[in-house]
Design a protein around this nucleic acid. Structure first.
Length: 380
DNA sequence: AAGTTAATAT
DNA sequence: TATATTAACT
């Protein structure tokens, strides 16, 4: 009866602390690594399995995710000695000196962008690391959660748990659409592409009460027919007033494209929204969105690193997921920085230096000495 | 079309 | 409450 417990990892599950303990007792680095990898692999395997139920089991997902991240950190520590993990572009990891400051800057901005991943600070670190990790290992094909998923998870986890029921129909429709888009367009297609046939109901809960606040222009442009009149109450059709587009989710990758385009156009001060949009070649991205983003970007640049303070790089827009964008196929929507089509070489670009580099960019390539003079221009 | 500003949602 | 994004205006 008594199954002879052998030591094989496969038989009995270990908790994370247990596995860590076990690891600490292993001196052989190879064995250690193997053990760790195996454990991570199993975690990821389970993660995959419950992925289907993540909406029902958000907490499980979180726990698992947490464990995985933790262990991957361990992995990194094991191998960190040998090779520095490749950090994403948007995390400038310069060789030495200013790193602290750069990070500081970034964190400043990040913290100002409240919606950033609250839970795991290390998420994006870990994502990139995990990426390189995966590449190194070349594990299986699908096994580990694509970073994009992680990225989205933390976007989603908030509401996912509650929303699911909402509009499955929409969801289906959407994914289908995405799919089409994918197959048709080799280009980057970002999630929000829907040109809303009709927006999803979420926003529709209007507070009609307050429209008058301003001169009323905000409320109804009174252009087209107010659709439905309910009980004689002129309820402005929700379509008109309430309808707001889904928030554009400026994922790091998208932002990167933005920045890239910006660079190519000679800086945020000279680039125009339209041009940027063209360069970005992101499907579904509107002029206004770019304009808005540009505005925000400029503000930040002014605020933090007006000049060369390319700390501007550090900025990463918070993500707001509307209520969708869970790509089952996870093709386009997720890849943050993957394919730059267009002429878009990502960062290689040699900008026209001769121009007026305002100094919002290029945190990526050079070791900057900028931060010394950030404060320089005091005028407003 | 670009730049601004108010409104709104998260 | 603050901030990010959208809508409307200029």
């Amino acid at each position: 009866m008594e199954p002879s417990l052998d030591l094989s990892l496969d038989s009995l599950p270990k908790t994370v602390p247990q596995i860590l303990l076990q690891l600490s007792s292993i001196s052989d680095s190879f064995t250690k690594r193997t053990t760790l990898d195996d454990y991570v692999k199993r975690l990821e395997d389970e993660m995959r399995k419950i992925d289907a139920f993540k909406r029902e089991l958000p907490l499980c997902v979180l726990l698992l995710q947490d464990a995985i991240l933790k262990l991957k950190e361990e992995v990194l520590q094991l191998q960190s000695v040998k090779e520095l993990p490749v950090i994403e572009e948007f995390m400038p990891l310069k060789g030495s000196s200013d790193q602290a400051d750069g990070e500081n800057e970034r964190r400043k901005w990040l913290s100002s962008a409240q919606l950033w991943n609250t839970n795991f600070n290390f998420v994006d670190d870990d994502i990139s690391n995990a990426k390189s990790n995966m590449n190194l290992d070349g594990d299986e094909d699908d096994r580990s959660v694509p970073q994009t998923q992680i990225e989205h998870w933390d976007c989603e986890k908030r509401r996912r748990a509650f929303e699911l029921f909402k509009d499955q129909s929409n969801f289906v429709k959407r994914s289908k659409k995405e799919d089409m888009a994918v197959s048709e367009v080799p280009k980057l297609t970002l999630m929000t592409t829907i040109s809303d046939p009709f927006p999803v109901n979420v926003n529709l809960t209007v507070k009609n009460g307050r429209v008058s606040g301003r001169s009323g222009r905000a409320a109804v442009s009174g252009s087209s027919s107010p659709a439905v009149q309910i009980n004689g109450q002129t309820k402005l059709s929700q379509q008109q007033q309430t309808i707001r587009k889904q928030r554009r989710c400026w994922s790091p990758g998208l932002h990167r494209r933005f920045i890239d385009a910006l660079h190519r156009l000679g800086g945020s001060q000279v680039a125009t929204p339209k041009q940027i949009k063209e360069l970005m070649q992101v499907d579904g991205l509107t002029n206004d969105e770019v304009k808005s983003h540009l505005q925000k970007y400029r503000l930040h640049v002014r605020k933090l690193g007006p000049q060369e303070g390319s700390s501007g790089e550090g900025w990463i827009p918070g993500e707001h997921d509307g209520e969708h964008h869970s790509k089952t196929s996870g093709t386009q929507a997720g890849s943050p920085d993957g394919p730059l089509q267009g002429g878009g070489s990502v960062k290689a670009l040699s900008i026209t230096e001769g121009e007026s580099m305002e100094g919002e960019e290029d945190a990526k390539s050079d070791g900057h000495s900028w931060k010394g003079r950030i404060q320089k221009h005091g005028d407003v």
